[in-house]
Design a protein around this nucleic acid. Structure first.
Lengths: 198, 198
DNA sequence: GGGCAAACGGGGCGCTCGTTCCGTTTACTT
DNA sequence: AAGTAAACGGAACGAGCGCCCCGTTTGCCC
């Protein structure tokens, strides 16, 4: 819930002015509405609709986020950080072997994206022109995933000729396949995972 | 090149009136321009752009195709028929075994879609509200693919717990993965294909 | 409680794009 | 060669949507 912070910049040091109470409240309402709306319909949802659901005017949204894209990224950055945290905690867990940890995350990642249209879209997008905050979050996720992959490869659980970039592409592919196949959730992902085993 | 036919309806029997010469010419020009434009940019290309490339006015496009969607489908139906023909000819070829035939088509299908943004989009789309002609073409493709799959499964080359629908989903997934991964074309598809083997 | 800057909100602008309309041109007929 | 209906083309319409402007409201400080 990092994005529920009151101030968009310089949270610790008291900057020029503290935010007004209603502004803080509205920022949170917009963010919550955006989360729900983007998750349900992806970037396609009109900004006016988000404003309406948040109970504010469109102008208010634009005071807090310079552009629709920026609002989208604010939502996405949160999700990416959560996923990065998941990867890192699996990495730290000594109870499961490398292969299990890797595939566990692989499945969790795709399952999560399935329920969040925006995340899927964000991962599919080329990812150009990202704000620094988003870029950092994406980097942390990639880093964690990369270490999970390496460990699993060293353990002989995953074929050695796959890079993180290719893995990312396969995740996108699995999400696309999963969305297309109605019955038996996770089956497409399982097939693709089988193709990844050594 | 079935769509280069002069008359949209009743080609054999002389209907109400034969088409005027310039109309025939323009229809073909529109179809060619649409083919190129849709292949390059998918459905996103504006209709005015297609008209411009074809050297006609937008109104002319609409006399031949009631809607942009209909024009799109006219292009897609051709592609689907060509693919169905490919599947059928592989089916008829006794020189290759069932597994080879299946995977050969699998790779060909994805490679083809890679070069044609519109085909990829069409396969990804839910496919609701299709014109009868398109529905028929899609059915023929699915039928051929289905027989290739069955034969390969019976031969033990492909895992038995996959249906045509799921296969379709995996094709879409492979296309998505392939588009996302820059280097070494076909690698993502090969990994997914490995997941499909028995 | 009064003053003031910050925040609000929604009407409106500008752009894109699918579709239609209609005055003009062009191919066929006799 | 003249008449006619089919076909043309591009200006114009309308809908959707991102974004901005500005008159009004509201929280904050003295």
């Amino acid at each position: 819930m990092t994005s529920h912070d009151a101030s968009p910049a310089a949270p610790g040091a008291p900057g020029p002015r503290p935010m007004r109470a209603d502004a803080v409240r509205n920022r949170a309402k917009v963010l919550d509405a955006a989360r729900a709306a983007f998750a349900a319909e992806g970037l396609a949802v009109p900004l006016d609709e988000i404003a309406r659901r948040a109970g504010v005017g469109a102008g208010t949204v634009y005071r807090h986020f310079p552009t629709k894209e920026a609002l989208f990224e604010a939502v996405i950055a949160d999700r990416l950080l959560a996923l990065a945290g998941d990867a890192e905690s699996r990495l730290a867990d000594d109870g499961v072997d490398a292969g299990e940890a890797f595939f566990g995350f692989f499945f969790a990642l795709i399952e999560d994206a399935e329920a969040k249209a925006d995340l899927a879209e964000a991962l599919m997008a080329a990812g150009v022109h990202l704000q620094p905050e988003t870029r950092h979050a994406a980097g942390r996720l990639t880093g964690g995933f990369s270490r999970l992959l390496e460990r699993a490869q060293r353990a002989g659980a995953v074929r050695g000729d796959v890079t993180v970039t290719e893995l990312h592409a396969l995740v996108v592919g699995a999400m696309a396949a999963e969305k297309r196949a109605a019955g038996e959730p996770g089956k497409m992902t399982r097939i693709i995972a089988d193709g990844l085993r050594a």
